[in-house]
Design a protein around this nucleic acid. Structure first.
Length: 420
DNA sequence: TCTGGGGTCCTAGGACCC
DNA sequence: TCTGGGGTCCTAGGACCC
C-alpha cells in the first residue's frame, strides 16, 4: 500500500499558521515579482481566482472581496515543509518527498485493518505540531494513491481528509469519477487528444489498448495506465542528486543595457555555483538565455540561448560568473527590451573526482575561498559576501510588497505573544 | 505599466565509430 | 542493376510535474 500525503493549499496554509485571524478568509500567495497567483485558500478558489492568474488583472477583485495577498516567502515555506516531512518520516523510513508539499509513503508490514486510523492519527499529529492541514490518499499503487488523495481533499465532510481505495469496486468508482484531464501525468496535450477519442475519465483510459497508449504517450503513459489498473508500475524513488540547477528571474523592469544584464548574469551564476557546492558537485557545462517580454506584441522579440562547455569542471562562483558573462556578450544584441534571463548548469561530476586537462586548470585557490564564502554567508545571511561584478548596492529589487516575516528562520522575526 | 521558477523523463534523428 | 550491420553519444523538442 502507498499513501500520498499532500498539504492543503500549502503556501496559503503556511501564511495562516502565523496569522490565525485569516482562517476562513480568502488568502492568495503571489510568485516572484508579485506576478502570478501560485497558491489560494479554499475561499480564494471559491471566488473564482484561477491558478497562475496575473495579479494585476485581479487587483479589483482582491480589493472587493478583501482577499489577503502575500508575496512568496520561500524561506518560510521551505522550513514548514521540513517540519511536516520530519513528522511523516517518524511513521515509516520508506518515504519519498515528492515536492515541497507532497510525500509518498510505503505502508508495509502494517496491520491493514487499521490504515484508516493510522492515517487519521498522522493527519492529527501534523496539524497539531505544525498547524498545516493535510490530505491523505491510500491505495495499492502510487497513481491510485494520487486519485484517493484527490477524493480526500474534494470531500472533506465525508472523508475527514483521509480516503482509502480499499476494494476493486472503490477503485472503479473513483476512476469513473475522475476526469481525464485531472489524472496525474496527463497534461493538457494528452487530455485534449484523449478526449477527441471519447476518453473522458480515468476509467476510460484504463480500458484503452496498451499499444495505442505506448505509441502516443510513450512508456511513461503505459506505466501510468497499469498503475491506475492496480498493477504496481511506479516505485518509491530515492532522492537523487540534481541533474540541472537553474537560477532564472524576470526583471522588475525592462533592461536594455549590457552592463545591467552582466550584473544579473554574474549574480545568477554565483547563486548556481552555491547550490552546486551544496550538492558537492562540479559542472562541466551551462546554458544561458535571455528573453524579451513575450506578452508584449508591440516590441520586437528576441530569445537567444547558448550552451557552453567548460574547459574544466568547476563549482567556483567566480569561474562560473566569468564564463557566463563572456557568453552573455556573445548573446547580447542592443535595441531589445530584456525582461528575463537565466542560467542552467548541468553535466555534473562529483567534486572530488575532477579530471584535469593538459592546458586548462581550475584555480585551486578557489576551493578554500568558496568554502569560506559559504561559511560567512551561512553565518551572517545570504549574499553577505558577493562578487564585485554583482551590484553591491542592490539589496533585492524584486517586487515583494506583501512579504510576511520569516517567522521560523530568523530570530528577529519570531512572533511575540502579548499576555493580557 | 503590471503575466513565476525549477525540475524530470522520453524519443527521434543525426553524427560518428568499428 | 547491385551499396551492411550494429552500436553509442548527443541534441532538440515535446510532454509532464509542483
Amino acid at each position: 500500500m502507498f499513501a500520498l500525503i499532500d498539504c492543503n493549499n500549502f503556501y496559503a496554509s503556511c501564511e495562516r499558521v502565523f496569522r490565525p485571524d485569516l482562517n476562513g478568509k480568502p488568502v492568495v500567495v503571489l510568485s516572484n515579482n508579485d506576478g502570478c497567483v501560485i497558491a489560494r485558500s479554499n475561499e480564494a478558489k471559491a471566488l473564482g481566482i484561477p491558478m497562475g492568474a496575473p495579479a494585476f488583472q485581479y487587483e479589483a477583485l482582491f480589493k472587493k472581496h478583501h482577499v489577503e495577498v502575500f508575496s512568496a516567502n520561500f524561506a518560510l515555506y521551505g522550513d514548514m515543509s521540513n517540519r511536516v516531512m520530519s513528522i511523516l518520516s517518524e511513521y515509516t523510513p520508506e518515504i519519498e518527498i515528492y515536492s515541497i508539499d507532497e510525500a509518498f509513503l510505503k505502508l508495509n508490514g502494517l496491520p491493514c485493518k487499521n490504515l484508516q486510523q493510522y492515517a487519521a492519527d498522522m493527519r492529527k499529529k501534523v496539524l497539531k505540531y505544525t498547524g498545516i492541514p493535510i490530505s491523505i490518499g491510500i491505495a495499492p499503487t502510487k497513481a491510485l494513491a494520487k486519485v484517493a488523495n484527490r477524493i480526500a481533499k474534494k470531500f472533506p465532510e465525508r472523508t475527514e481528509n483521509v480516503y482509502w481505495i480499499q476494494t476493486e469496486e472503490a477503485r472503479i468508482k473513483a476512476l469513473k469519477w475522475l476526469k481525464i484531464e485531472d489524472v496525474w501525468g496527463i497534461g493538457r496535450k494528452h487530455a485534449q487528444r484523449l478526449k477527441q477519442r471519447h476518453i473522458n475519465t480515468a476509467y476510460d483510459f484504463t480500458q484503452m489498448e496498451d499499444a495505442w497508449v505506448k505509441k502516443h504517450m510513450t512508456i511513461v503513459g503505459l506505466r501510468l495506465k497499469h498503475d491506475l489498473m492496480g498493477i504496481p508500475s511506479l516505485q518509491l524513488e530515492d532522492v537523487q542528486p540534481k541533474k540541472n540547477i537553474a537560477t532564472t528571474r524576470s526583471f522588475e523592469k525592462n533592461y536594455t543595457e549590457l552592463h545591467e544584464l552582466k550584473e544579473r548574469i554574474s549574480t545568477f551564476a554565483f547563486i548556481c555555483a552555491e547550490k552546486l557546492r551544496k550538492q558537492q558537485s562540479c559542472c562541466r557545462a551551462f546554458t544561458i538565455f535571455l528573453h524579451t517580454n513575450p506578452h508584449r506584441h508591440d516590441a520586437p522579440q528576441y530569445h537567444p540561448s547558448a550552451m557552453i562547455k567548460l574547459p574544466f569542471p568547476t563549482q567556483s562562483g567566480m569561474e562560473l560568473s566569468r564564463f557566463a558573462t563572456q557568453a552573455l556578450q556573445r548573446l547580447f544584441r542592443p535595441g531589445y527590451l530584456y525582461k528575463k534571463a537565466g542560467i542552467i548548469i548541468h553535466d555534473f561530476v562529483p567534486h572530488n573526482a575532477i579530471q584535469g586537462t593538459l592546458f586548462d586548470q581550475p584555480n585551486k585557490k578557489h576551493v578554500p575561498l568558496m568554502h569560506t564564502i559559504d561559511h560567512i554567508n551561512h553565518l551572517f545571511g545570504q549574499a553577505t559576501v558577493k562578487l564585485a561584478s554583482q551590484d553591491l548596492q542592490r539589496t533585492w529589487k524584486m517586487k515583494q510588497e506583501k512579504l510576511s516575516p520569516r517567522y521560523t528562520t530568523r530570530l528577529s522575526d519570531i512572533i511575540t505573544i502579548h499576555a493580557l
